[in-house]
Simulated scan of single mutants.
Amino acid sequence: MSQNGTVARPPSVAVSVLGPVLGLIKAARPRQWLKNVLVLAAPMAAGVLGDPRSLLAALLVFAAFCLAASGTYLLNDASDVAADRLHPRKRTRAVASGAVSVRLARVTGVALMLLAPAVAALTGDWRSPAVVAGYLVLTLSYTLWLKHQEVVELIAVAACHVVRAFAGAVAVDVPVTGWFLVVVSLAALQLVAGKREAELRAQGDGGTRATLAAYSPAYLAQVRVMCSGALIVTYCLWALNAHDGVFYALSIVPFLLLVLRHNLLVDRGMGEEPEELAVRDRPLLLFAVALVVFVGLGVQL
């Protein structure tokens, strides 16, 4: 009974269900599905996205990786709930805040991870669900063990990005060149090193992620700079020697600006959420669009 003497009504079923559903959507982190655009990298570079069947296959694998990634996020949040509740930003996450129970997060996470290979199988090629399954094994290994191993965890997270790019090539049945793998691998490692560097600076003494305590800002900056240099050289060699045409050569300019801009943002402490940088930082977005346009013109012309 309320203070004014009226009988308090229990919350409706709709409200009690809507809360966890919204929490699950938030915990699935749809904003981070942007990472899965890497699936389209190889099909775009091969110039096959204009074919309806290839486009459909690429989109199916993209959807599969979105499901797989969201399932992984839910399981990871359930695993890290105690540590996340001590983190100034992560404590607002759905699982850490209590909006979604640990059990519900685990059940939903497993369901999404089982659904992901099934969606990839709709491509009609057994290799696509196999690659998605390999990605799930890698992400589960990261959640359960690899994230606690310094240096190894950097490579593991970067490898997840490489698998995404490789899956796109498998989906449309185009060969994966060594140039492509090296560029994607170095770019992924630069992003991960920048993310850890920004996290370490934001949390000072290592915060709630125990692995961060094993790093120093100088070490992570060194890894990032090393990757940047190797990445620029590799891309330039690919653009100038692996292909003929002025547009590939012109693509070096926005690529260089993209790498340098990312390094600048990390130095400013803004690299903790690289997927948000790609959307919110206008120069970074402009350079990325210019890169896609030049490579696309090189492929078509």
Rank of each mutant, 00 (worst) to 15 (best):
L212F: 00
V182F: 09
D244N: 13
L146C: 04
V172S: 04
A105T: 08
D77R: 05
L260I: 06
L301F: 15
R31D: 13
L237E: 14
Q149I: 08
L256D: 05
A288V: 09
A130D: 05
I25H: 01
C66N: 12
N4D: 15
V292F: 09
A64G: 11
A165Q: 02
R93Y: 05
E153W: 11
L34Q: 08
A169P: 13
R53D: 14
V163P: 07
A57L: 02
L256W: 07
N263Q: 15
A156N: 07
D205I: 02
L291K: 10
S2N: 13
S185H: 11
A188G: 02
C236D: 13
P129A: 02
T139Q: 00
A42H: 04
P117D: 06
G296W: 08
S79A: 12
V37K: 00
V137W: 03
W145L: 15
S101A: 07
P117A: 04
Y219M: 14
K35G: 05
E275I: 00
R127K: 15
A130S: 01
L104A: 10
L189C: 01
S128C: 14
R93H: 07
E276P: 10
A165I: 05
R103G: 11
A288L: 10
I155N: 09
V279M: 15
L18E: 13
V100T: 05
Q190V: 06
A188W: 04
D281R: 08
H243M: 09
A41M: 10
T177C: 07
K26S: 13
